[in-house]
Design a protein around this nucleic acid. Structure first.
Length: 415
DNA sequence: TGTCCACTGGAAGGGAGGGCTT
DNA sequence: AAGCCCTCCCTTCCAGTGGACA
């Protein structure tokens, strides 16, 4: 046996007892803590499915990390189990979960649902190419091919509606009128309570038969959730009890977000492990908090489209020379200057305002519409990311790396 | 009180790219 | 190969606007 560079790392005791996926927010535990009321309520709404009747549509609201997705996936396990049970009269219940952040087009959603009912690979709806109308008819035909109840969950439904309008939802909420055998109910999940305002009133009333709100977790509840997971994931006595309370307290202060709390604990443990420390301590949590925030920004910035990178770089370069508040006009002028420097085709100011809004939505910059009276009405733009780290992340893109030591010429209007 | 600035943001549509059908 | 269809990225056009200033 030859020694390898991994040996010393393999030998050291691991902080993690098992698969570290347990600490990821996508892991669904056997029992979901502090969501009994919500689970029971959804169960009571969905139970007609097990008698072959159509359940009411449900809209679920709640901030990120309040357990909406976990609950929806948990319901999938439970209802499938119940449908297979011999006590149940009606067995053909199909539960389909779609994350509209990933599948975010009308076509994609209809295709995803449709393909769940098509066993033969050659018969499947292709990822692109068909008219949407055709996808819809295929879906309807396949779903309705025998008596069954379909429960379709559209997670992040607000993004979907925002992006594609409400056509697909209109069709899906209306589909039951055209069925002879099947029945379908929709569960929409959103963290934006206002998104229903975008909907046609007919869809709004159909979709929102039942409405539920998932409240944020408080510190004690977060602590319970962390304790449940850490018992499964970590070796005994590795995690200081104060660490759990600290993670819970930090996140309860922010949003009551279980996802972030779990991430925080996991990254703390990873830092401890990498440091070859035997225990996870509060110090690791503080370090992890900083690391997570920075990693998030770097990743978001790294995957930005080129045009957005140039815009953001322009904002940061202005900030570097003390221009902290910029208008859309300033940003566009800098953007044009940088484009000329690297020979990049420029887009119009209209397009740039959209890209600025996107950066704002992502939390990378903050752009507020402000009126300067005679000075006009425009956006006031300030970056909200650490300057040096973000800039060096941007400059890693080979297309713009030459801008690293470029000095801006353009004079700002705001002082 | 009305004017006017510098945009904002909606609407419509073009065209490239990817993929299917005939 | 020609004809469709959908999505994505973008342009063009333009009515609308908050508030400082004359």
């Amino acid at each position: 046996m030859t020694a390898t560079i991994f040996d010393k790392h393999l030998k050291k005791p691991s902080i993690f007892k098992r698969d570290r996926d347990i600490m990821s927010s996508s892991y669904i535990p056997e029992k979901l803590l502090h969501r009994d009321d919500q689970i029971n309520q959804i169960a009571s709404i969905l139970v007609p499915a097990l008698r072959g009747e159509r359940p009411s549509n449900i809209l679920i609201f709640g901030k990120t990390g309040t357990g909406k997705t976990a609950t929806a996936k948990y319901m999938s396990k439970e209802i499938t189990k119940a449908a297979q049970s011999t006590l149940t009269k009606f067995n053909d219940v199909v539960y389909i979960y779609i994350n509209c952040e990933i599948v975010d087009t009308q076509y994609g959603v209809l295709q995803n649902i449709g393909n769940r009912f098509i066993k033969d690979f050659d018969e499947r709806i292709p990822p692109t190419g068909w008219a949407t109308e055709r996808v819809y008819y295929k879906l309807k035909e396949e779903m309705d091919s025998k008596p069954r109840v379909c429960i379709v969950v559209l997670d992040e439904i607000d993004r979907f509606v925002h992006k594609t309008g409400d056509d697909a939802l209109y069709r899906l909420t209306k589909i039951n009128d055209e069925f002879e055998n099947a029945k379908m109910c929709l569960i929409g999940i959103s963290n934006n309570m206002k998104f229903t305002e975008l909907l046609d009133p007919r869809i709004r009333s159909r979709l929102g038969d039942e409405k539920m709100v998932f409240p944020p977790y408080d510190a004690d509840q977060l602590r319970d959730i962390l304790a449940q997971r850490s018992e499964l994931a970590f070796a005994e006595n590795v995690v200081d009890p104060n660490v759990l309370s600290l993670c819970a307290a930090v996140e309860a202060n922010e949003q009551g977000d279980a996802r972030s709390a779990l991430d925080l604990l996991r990254v703390s443990a990873e830092l401890a492990e990498r440091n070859r420390d035997e225990k996870v301590t509060e110090q690791h949590v503080y370090k992890a908090k900083n690391k997570i925030e920075l990693d998030c920004v770097i990743e978001a910035v790294r995957t930005l489209p080129l045009q957005s990178k140039v815009i953001l770089l322009g904002i940061l370069m202005n900030e570097e020379i003390g221009q902290l508040k910029l208008t859309t006009g300033d940003v566009y002028a800098t953007y044009k200057e940088l484009c000329r420097k690297i020979g990049l085709a420029m887009v119009t100011q209209r397009r740039v305002t959209d890209l600025i809004s996107e950066l704002d939505m992502m939390g990378i910059i903050s752009a507020r519409v402000k009126s300067f009276g005679r000075g006009g009405r425009t956006k006031e733009i300030v970056s909200s990311v650490p300057l040096l780290e973000t800039k060096s992340a941007l400059l890693r893109d080979p297309m713009i790396e030459t801008l690293g030591d470029y000095k801006l010429k353009h004079q700002m209007t705001l002082m």
